[in-house]
């Protein structure tokens, strides 16, 4: 299998003012390292409000100007520079945003879907294609002439997916596609994502919903306080926790209501108070002095990657 996208040591931070003269630095993503292969769904799992969306914005090159970005990204072994990002954005790599709030409320859906095209014949060609794709997703012809506020929740999601598909992308980044949807729509979204994979598109699914991640993805990358702490095959989440290596990943598995709802003491701090050393030390029962001093590197064990000095291997 070929590597499509490689993100190496990505960090994203912001310097912000918050009270009077005080300035603070917020490291939202500290060390994010992931690979995306052809024809796979990779879920990036992290708790809400953690700025996971910034990963998507970082790959697409649409971060705000006050963001400090470090690390390298490659698309098919070619370095993903700002120029390349701009070239690929919306064509080869496209985004399914969180909600219709990302659409312009004063513009008809079909014109937003095709984007701004000056050439009249090219425009008609695109519109035709847009109609085809909308049809494939069971969207009525009239939907194209609607405005965003007229869409129901389920329709909106389909519009966003079909819009992302319009330029035959190789990679789709789906940013939290499920929250706020009813059960039926969640199930439909899951089917749609798997369907995308079958069509030969690779998907990065950014989510905090572990159920959706398990049902759709091939691999899961677990994000904790801005660090990727484990990348594991999804099947390791399905039956038991034996092949999960990081203490947090194990705790996460055991904490699911269907797996025993087991209590782990400690708490997850805020991004302003990321501890020195291992990010998970506040909750970890295996920690030693070494963990408090230096962040463990991401190491390969079997098919997994894990960031821990004492991975739990059965």
């Amino acid at each position: 299998m070929n590597k499509l996208l490689e993100v190496d040591n990505l960090s994203i931070g912001f310097t912000q003012y918050f009270k009077g003269l005080k300035q603070r630095k917020l490291n939202v993503i500290s060390d994010l390292t992931i690979d995306l292969y052809e024809n796979e769904i990779l879920a990036v799992l992290g708790s809400s409000g953690s700025g996971k969306s910034l990963l998507a914005h970082g790959i697409l090159g649409i971060l705000p100007p006050n963001a400090e970005v470090n690390g390298l990204m490659y698309y098919k072994n070619e370095e993903l520079t700002d120029e390349l990002k701009e070239k690929l954005r919306g064509n080869t790599i496209s985004l399914i945003p969180q909600s219709v709030n990302y659409l312009n409320p004063l513009m008809k859906i079909k014109y937003q879907a095709i984007g701004y095209i000056e050439d009249e014949s090219l425009k008609n060609e695109k519109l035709k294609k847009q109609e085809e794709i909308f049809e494939r997703y069971n969207l009525d012809k009239t939907v194209g002439d609607m405005y965003p506020h007229q869409l129901s929740g389920g329709m909106a999601r389909k519009v966003l997916i079909s819009t992302a598909l319009l330029n035959n992308p190789k990679i789709i980044i789906a940013d939290e596609p499920t929250p706020g949807l009813d059960k039926k729509s969640v199930d439909e979204t899951i089917t749609d994502l798997i369907d995308l994979k079958d069509k030969g598109v690779s998907v990065i699914l950014i989510t905090h919903d572990i159920d959706t991640a398990i049902k759709t993805s091939d691999r899961i990358a677990i994000l904790y306080l801005g660090y990727i702490i484990e990348v594991t095959e999804t099947k390791n989440f399905k039956y038991n926790n034996e092949n999960l290596l990081h203490p947090y990943t194990k705790a996460l598995f055991n904490a699911l209501p269907e797996n025993g709802f087991k209590l782990t003491n400690g708490h997850q701090p805020s991004y302003l108070n990321i501890p020195k050393g291992c990010p998970y030390q506040d909750n970890c029962e295996y920690k030693t002095d070494k963990c408090l001093k230096k962040v463990p590197p991401l190491v390969k064990i079997g098919t997994s990657l894990v960031r821990c000095y004492y991975p739990i291997i059965n």
Partner: peptide
Amino acid sequence: TMLDAVTQVQ
């Protein structure tokens, strides 16, 4: 709803 499973149990 907005928290991870470990925090949810806590």
